[in-house]
């Protein structure tokens, strides 16, 4: 998807009166801005599932995917470590049932392994406009609130500094046999998130949580884009 197409996608979603993009759509927009996201295929019909699963490769993550669904975990719409076709088919049935009437499909996703989870995002401050966030991800985001912000546009120096600003910044170093994070790649992600804030006025908020460090490389595993 190109940046122009991403803009169209958002315009279309707004026309439909939606306030959020689905995870799948959000990642298309992010990918258009060169932000690394999980490989994934949106499966609407059961018969498409085996092919999609083969393309992505087991083990899989499968998620109910619709614009109106946030907090997928709490709604029992996520299956991780799906290892074969049988498990995939069963997960598909269960997720569809749990989704009820919600329009949408099942996202068949590459399972990214890595023990370090980060968060990135975008908010619009009433005084300073688009501001990019970086911090510890996953369940630590809300518990520790170990985060920092920078006003967009970000220079590389800003992006590198905001990573150093969090108390837990040592998680980005070489720890416990894990390689040091690719901070250049992380910096690029932060810069590009800021660029989305500047380019796409209709984007109100972004959450990439978690961004998992797969070895040294960051990948956005879940994404939320809120529209305004």
């Amino acid at each position: 998807m190109t940046k122009a197409q991403a803009k169209k996608l958002i315009t279309q979603a707004k026309r439909e009166g939606r306030t959020t993009l689905s995870e799948y759509e959000a990642k298309l927009v992010l990918a258009a801005y060169k932000i690394p996201v999980t490989q994934e295929i949106l499966v609407e019909k059961k018969k498409e599932l085996p092919g999609a699963a083969r393309t992505i490769g087991y083990p899989l993550v499968m998620k109910g995917c619709a614009a109106e669904i946030a907090h997928k975990t709490e709604k029992n719409l996520v299956r991780v470590d799906v290892r074969n076709k049988e498990e995939a088919l069963q997960a598909f049935e269960e997720i569809k049932t749990a989704m009820g009437d919600a329009q949408g499909g099942v996202l068949v996703q590459q399972m990214v392994s890595g023990r370090r989870e980060l968060v990135m995002g975008l908010t619009r401050d009433p005084q300073f406009g688009a501001c990019v966030m970086f911090g510890l991800g996953g369940i630590f985001t809300e518990i520790l609130k170990d985060i920092s912000f920078r006003k967009a546009p970000l220079e590389e120096r800003d992006a590198l500094e905001m990573m150093g600003d969090i108390k837990g910044h040592k998680i980005l170093g070489a720890v416990r046999g894990m390689p040091a994070a690719d901070t250049k790649a992380l910096a690029k992600m932060l810069i590009h998130i800021g660029q989305i804030g500047l380019d796409l006025e209709a984007v109100a908020e972004i959450d990439l949580n978690p961004v998992i460090l797969s070895g040294a490389k960051p990948v956005a595993v879940d994404a939320l884009i809120v529209l305004r």
């Binding site: 995002g121 401050d125 966030m133 609130k145 908020e205 959450d207 809120v226």
Partner: peptide, 10 residues
């Protein structure tokens, strides 16, 4: 009123 963690912590 916000929906994302990012905005709620900002």
């Amino acid at each position: 009123a916000v929906q994302s963690h990012t905005a709620s912590m900002g």
